[in-house]
Design a protein around this nucleic acid. Structure first.
Lengths: 117, 117
DNA sequence: GTATCGTACAACCAAATGGTTGTACTAGAA
DNA sequence: TTCTAGTACAACCATTTGGTTGTACGATAC
């Protein structure tokens, strides 16, 4: 299994990119089907340039890729990167569960030492 | 099952809070054990006030809680919130998987319609 | 009591963010 | 060819972010 190898900076950009509702919507839409930047821009109450910037942030975080098709740029969601973000959160959960495990051990040890309680 | 009910703004704050290496480290440490703000501050190359602000960002996102203990404030990681963030990413993955499912259906239908290919 | 430890919070600053308008270039349509 | 659709990118602006210093205040230690 390939261990997740992301720098702090990479992780920062992934979560930063997901911290905006418009960008999350772009990711959802481009996971479902390829969409051009102008098609995306039509959907939101902001200028084309603003949407372009959001796509750039997502591209920088590698949450989407852009591919030229004719005069358009098709945006495609990157499920692999979503997977990596999930693994990052899984690590937090694992840390927490290991704490619970250790607490259980302590309780078990305590029950053995003081069975009268 | 209780459906995840988070506003866009809530989600923004959760991901925004996770988009900083110091804050992610604070979450990890406070998931393992309760730590006071000053103990946290000792660990990082920044002032106490800066760490205090990071904790405030995490608290605002409900990724940690703060509880007074004597003159200290103990910071505690909130695994429930991590769980909610995981569910959010799961939703993205589900969207992607449903696309794959539909593509499979199309291929199957195509194979049926044009079995000679 | 007084000293000090841990915290809260305001004010300030530089840099990043999220938006705008305007200009320019390229590919396809007429 | 000319027109237009789609994009790229620079410049600008207001707000937010991430840090600082300084002041104040309650809880504990002496």
């Amino acid at each position: 299994m390939v261990v997740l190898e992301l720098s702090d900076h990479d992780v920062n950009r992934i979560f930063r990119a997901l911290a905006d509702a418009t960008r999350r919507d772009i990711v959802r839409r481009t996971l479902v089907a390829d969409v051009s930047v102008s098609q995306l821009a039509d959907s939101y109450e902001m200028t084309f340039a603003a949407v372009q910037k959001h796509v750039a942030v997502l591209e920088d975080a590698r949450l989407v890729t852009k591919e030229p098709r004719g005069r358009e740029r098709m945006v495609r969601g990157n499920p692999e990167r979503i997977r990596q973000a999930q693994l990052l959160l899984d690590q937090f959960e694992a840390i927490w569960r290991s704490r619970i495990g250790r607490l259980d051990d302590l309780l078990a040890a305590d029950a053995t030492t003081h069975p009268e309680t």
